[in-house]
Structure formats: C-alpha cells, structure tokens
Amino acid sequence: MSRQLRQQLGFTLLGLATTIVVLPILLLVGYILVQGASAISWEFITAMPREGMRAGGIWPALVGTVLLTLGTAIFAVPVGIAVAIYLAEYAHDTSLTRLIRLAIINLAGVPSVVYGLFGLGLFVIFLRLGTSILAGSLTLAIMTLPVIISTAEEALRAVPQSFRIVSLSLGATQWQTVRRVVLPQALPGILTGVILGLERAAGETAPILFTVAAFFLPRLPRSIFDQTMALPYHLFVISTQVPGMPLRIQYGTALVLLAFVLSMNALATVIRSHFRRRRQW
C-alpha cells in the first residue's frame, strides 16, 4: 500500500471516529427537541404540577434546580478557588501536597451516588440538617469541588512564572502578586471550570436523591431548610414512577433540563472567548 493511500485511510478512520462521537449527541438533542418541543409553553414552565404530575407544569422543579445550583456555587466556588490558589501558588511540592492532589483527582472519579450517601450520612443525619436545600447544596458542592479545584489550579499554573517574579521584584508580597497579576490572568480558565462543575451539579440526580429532592411538592420551598423538587429527579420520577404519564411531558422536562445545562455551557464558551481576545500575552 502506498504511503499516500495509507495516509488517506488514516484520515478516513479518524474522521469516522469523530463522526461516531458527534452523531449520537446530535441525534439525542434532536430527538429530545422533536419529542419535547410540543410540551413547552408558558404554563409548562411557570405552573405547578397537577393531577399527579400528569398535567400542569414544572415550575417548582425548575426553581429547585436553580436554587441548588446557586447553593452549590456559594459553597464550592470560594472554597475551590481558595484550595487551587493554595496548591498552585503557596504549597511546596511535598509528599503531603502530592497526597492532597491525588485525593482530589480520585474524588473526581467517585460515583455520584456515593456522594449522595455521604451527604445523607454527614449533612442530613449527623449535622441534623434534614432533607433540605442546604444539605443538597452542600452534597453537590463536595461533588463539584474536585472539578473546580483541578481546572482552577491548571489555569493558575498556566500564568507565566515571569509575571510573578517581576511583581515580587517590584516589592509586591506574594498575596498582592496573586491578587493583582495572577488571578486576573487565570480568571477565564477558572470561570470555565466553575461553570463546567456547576453544570454537572445541575444535572445530577443521585446526590440529591437522599438529601433534598422531593417526589411531589407542588409549592415553592420556603427556606433553605425546606425540601424542593428538582429537574433531574423530577424527570426520573415521571419517567419511571408514575403510570400513564404523557410522553411529551417527559420529553418536555428533559428539554428544559438540557436547555438549562447547555446554556450554562454556552456561557462558559462566551466568557472564555471574550477574555481570550483581551489577553495580553
């Protein structure tokens, strides 16, 4: 076989592999769009579910998911960025910090249902938070932390070392250097990681299953100690637990969840390209 032909074959195989990856995604999104679009209406978004969820809307589940995502952000973002700054800027390379990094990487691989059980044990039962938005947010935050920490640490490490040395040589302290030079440069990368992490939190079912999610609660939560419905769990419930469920409501719910997550993704892309254009190195 000639070299030209082999190259041609190689490209074809690579292209094929890419198609195999992209095609299911397009089919999935397309299918949900086609099946669910007819369910979408102002009422579907903003009304309480009625008749055992077989009619009405998904308002409390949507609000619940937004609240849980916000709650996750409040806990996970400051802690995650603080840990990343510590690891990237302050911690020396010792066996302890290597152990911490290894732990963080491994935490990212823990199945989400395990986080759910952990949250049940620690927050719901031991800390007596009950099944509540607070317990759910904390559980999701712990699940999200490894993603935020590792992407933020990467982003901080990508800032050229020469900036730090110059800043220190101008009489800045290490914190002033981080605050005024390194963080602004790493911000787009950090934000991307934050949004990707939160996006995963918004779509997860298992961690909220035992810690916050209500099966059927046709009202908005009254406080952070209240339970709430949430989109992923609601989708699970109406897909498997309620007989005689209209298909279009199931796909409509899936479509709203997908749109929520994808719009966060789009936001991350916009932020990244916006800052990349302004980057000065």
Partner: peptide
C-alpha cells in the same frame, strides 16, 4: 531582567 516582561496591564 534579561527578557522584558511587561505586566499584562
């Protein structure tokens, strides 16, 4: 320094 490094500002 040997290489000029303007801070990104």
């Amino acid at each position: 320094f040997a290489t000029p490094v303007p801070l990104p500002m």
